[in-house]
Design a protein around this nucleic acid. Structure first.
Lengths: 334, 334
DNA sequence: TTGTATGCGTTATCAG
DNA sequence: CTGATAACGCATACAA
C-alpha cells in the first residue's frame, strides 16, 4: 500500500495525496475529504524510508548513556524521551558502557543511523579533562550532527552543554557540614569524570575557605556498590572522619551501612550526604540527605536548545548551567 | 559525499562501489583495494535512508516501556539493548505511560518508524485479562511487525511472549511463609496487570493448598511508593497480619518502614518479601528478601526468538516461560 | 486547485 | 568481474 495506490483509488495524482497527507492548504475541501476517507479506509502509512530519503531526516534523536540501569541515567532518559516525543521526535537509545573504545564505537554507530542530533548523557563522555584529545571524537561527531552533552563540558563547533552546578552544590554541602562542626569530611567518589572533578573542587574550596586542611587521605575512590563502599570504609583503620560526602547515593548508603556496623549514631556521631536524590534515599534507614541535581530541568533545557539548533533560526549558547538543591533528610542535622 | 562521488573518484561504476561496501566476493582484489582506499580517505558513509528504502529495513527494533525510570524496566532495556546491539540492531525507545490511549498511540508511532519488530516490556501491555478486546491493538500491530511481549500473555498471529514464572514464584514464597508458621499473609500490590494476577493466583493457591482461608481483606492495593505503602499499612487498624508479600520491592520497603514505626522485629514479629530483587533490597535495613525474576534471561530469550522470527528459517514458539528464584536476605527466616 | 516530472542514494537485476 | 539501469516511495518545483 503506497501513495500510488491511494492516488489511483481516489482518482487523483500522487502529488495531491501527498498534499493531503501533509495537510497542505492548497487542496479543495472536497478532494481532501475524498482522499482522507480512502487513506483512512486502507490504513495507509507513508513509507518512512522514502520520506527520510527525500527530506534527509527521520525526526530522530540519538540518546547515548553509559548504563541505562543507573537511576540517574534512566530518569534522564525518561525526561528526554518525554520532551522529544512531545515535539514529534523519536529516540534511538544506545548504552555504551564506560570504555573509550565502546563510547567512540557507539557514537559513530549512532551517527550512521541518520539521527538529527545526538545527546550524550553523563560526564563520562567529557573525559577526565586530562587532555584535549580525549574529546576529539565528540568534535568529529559534531561535524555531522549537533551534539548535546548533559553534565559534561566539551568545547567545539556544534557542541552544546547543559551542566548542573555540581561545584556550587558540593561547596554548599561541605560548608554546611563545616558549619555543623565537622572537621574531618570524607569525600567518597566512584569516578574521575568532569562532574566528579567539579564536586571535588567544590569540596576542597569550601575546606580551604574555612581554613581547613585538604587532606588527600580523606578522598577515597571506590566502585559504585553499596557493599564495596561499606567495606572500604570499614577497612580504613588509621583514618578518622566525622562525616561523609559521597558523589552518588549508592556510595552514601554504603556509608550508612558502615555507620550501622560501627554502631555510630547518625547524624550525631557521623553525618552523611549523598548525590542524585534517587529512590535509594528514602529506602535507606535512616533516610539519606542528598543533592538533587534537578535532572528534569537539565533535560528540559537540553531539548529546548536542541530544538532551537535544529530550527536554525536563533543562535544558541554553547553552555548552560542549572542549579542543584539539597534534599534534607535524616543523615544530617542541617 | 555519496556513492556517485566515490565511483567517479575511483573511476568505477556505483555498482562496484556498492559491491565493495557490502563486501561482495565478485570484485577483483585490485579494484576492491582502490575503492576501499578512497572510501576510507573521504570517510564516506552510505546514506541510511536510501539504504532503508531499497532494503525496506533499517535494522531497528522498537522497545516500548511504560516508564523507563522503573528499575525493572531500565534493567530490561539495558539487557535488550545490549543483546540487540551485539547483533547489529539499533533500538528505538518509547515510554508510553500506563493509560490505554497513550499505549496505543505509542505503538502506532513505533510502527510508523519502520521498525523490524516491536518489543513491549511489562505486563501492562497485556491488559487485565478482562476482555479480549483490550489487546486488539497488539494483534493489529502484529500484522505489520512481529510483536514480542515481556511478561505479558497475549495470543495472536505474529505475537510472541516471554514470561517469568510469577505464579510459581509467588506460590513458593507463600508456601515458605506458611512453612514458617505464618497464617496472616498480607498480599500487597500496585497493579491489576497480567503478572500481578499471576502473583495473586500463586499466593491464593498456596494458601488454599495449605487449607488456609483466602481473606480478601488481606489483599491490599496501593500506588508503588514507599511512603504510601507504609501509610496504608499504618492505617489498617482492625487488620492483623504476620507477614507481607509485596509484588514490588518499593512496596516491600514500605512494609519495612511500617514495621520500624510499629517497633516490630523483622523477621521475628513480621516477615516481608519483595519482588524484582532491585537495588532497593540491599539499601533497605534490614535487607530485603525478594523474588528475582531473572530479567536478564527473559531478555536474552526474547532477543533470541526475535532474531529467529526475523530470520524466518525456523518456527518459533508463541510462548516461553523463565523461572524465577528467591534472593534470601534479612526480612525472612527462610 | 491539480498534475507531471524529477531528485533523493541505495541495492539488485541483467547484460556484457 | 563490471557497468547500465530499474526500482524503492515520497516531496516538491514547475507547469497547466
Amino acid at each position: 500500500m503506497n501513495i500510488y495506490d491511494i492516488a489511483e483509488e481516489a482518482g487523483v495524482s500522487i502529488a495531491t495525496v501527498s498534499r493531503v497527507m501533509n495537510n497542505s492548504p492548497k487542496v479543495s475541501e472536497k478532494t481532501k475529504q475524498k482522499v482522507k476517507e480512502i487513506i483512512e479506509r486502507s490504513d495507509y502509512t507513508p513509507n518512512i524510508f522514502a520520506q527520510g530519503l527525500g527530506l534527509n531526516t527521520m525526526h530522530t534523536i540519538g540518546v547515548l548513556v553509559p548504563r541505562i540501569s543507573d537511576a540517574y541515567m534512566s530518569s534522564a532518559v525518561a525526561f528526554l524521551e518525554d520532551n522529544l516525543h512531545e515535539k514529534g521526535y523519536g529516540c534511538i537509545l544506545g548504552c555504551s558502557g564506560f570504555s573509550r573504545a565502546e563510547k567512540e564505537a557507539h557514537v559513530s554507530m549512532m551517527l550512521s543511523k541518520g539521527i538529527d542530533a545526538l545527546i550524550l548523557v553523563g560526564s563520562t563522555y567529557a573525559g577526565t579533562g586530562a587532555s584535549e584529545e580525549e574529546t576529539d571524537y565528540i568534535r568529529k561527531a559534531a561535524s555531522k550532527s549537533p551534539v548535546f552533552i548533559i553534565n559534561g563540558l566539551v568545547s567545539g563547533e556544534n557542541v552544546y552543554c547543559t551542566l548542573s552546578n555540581d561545584y556550587q552544590a558540593s561547596y554548599d554541602v561541605t560548608a554546611r557540614l563545616i558549619g555543623n562542626g565537622r572537621r574531618k569530611i570524607l569525600f567518597l567518589t566512584d569516578s574521575h569524570s568532569y562532574s566528579a572533578n567539579q564536586k571535588r573542587k567544590g569540596y576542597e574550596d569550601a575546606l580551604s575557605h574555612a581554613r581547613l586542611p585538604v587532606d588527600p587521605a580523606l578522598q577515597l575512590f571506590v566502585k559504585n556498590d553499596i557493599y564495596k563502599a561499606r567495606d572500604l570504609l570499614l577497612s580504613q583503620n588509621g583514618l578518622s572522619f566525622d562525616s561523609v560526602f559521597a558523589t552518588d547515593d549508592g556510595l552514601a548508603v554504603g556509608a550508612v551501612k558502615y555507620a550501622g556496623e560501627k554502631r555510630l549514631q547518625i547524624p550525631n556521631d557521623i553525618e552523611i550526604v549523598g548525590y542524585n536524590n534517587s529512590s535509594l534515599c528514602i529506602c535507606s534507614n535512616p533516610e539519606l540527605t542528598s543533592v538533587d541535581n534537578n535532572i528534569s530541568d537539565v533535560c528540559c533545557d537540553t531539548v529546548k536548545r536542541l530544538l532551537k539548533v535544529l530550527d536554525g533560526q536563533e543562535a544558541v549558547s554553547a553552555q548552560n548551567v542549572v542549579n542543584c538543591s539539597i534534599a534534607h533528610r535524616e543523615t544530617t542535622s542541617f
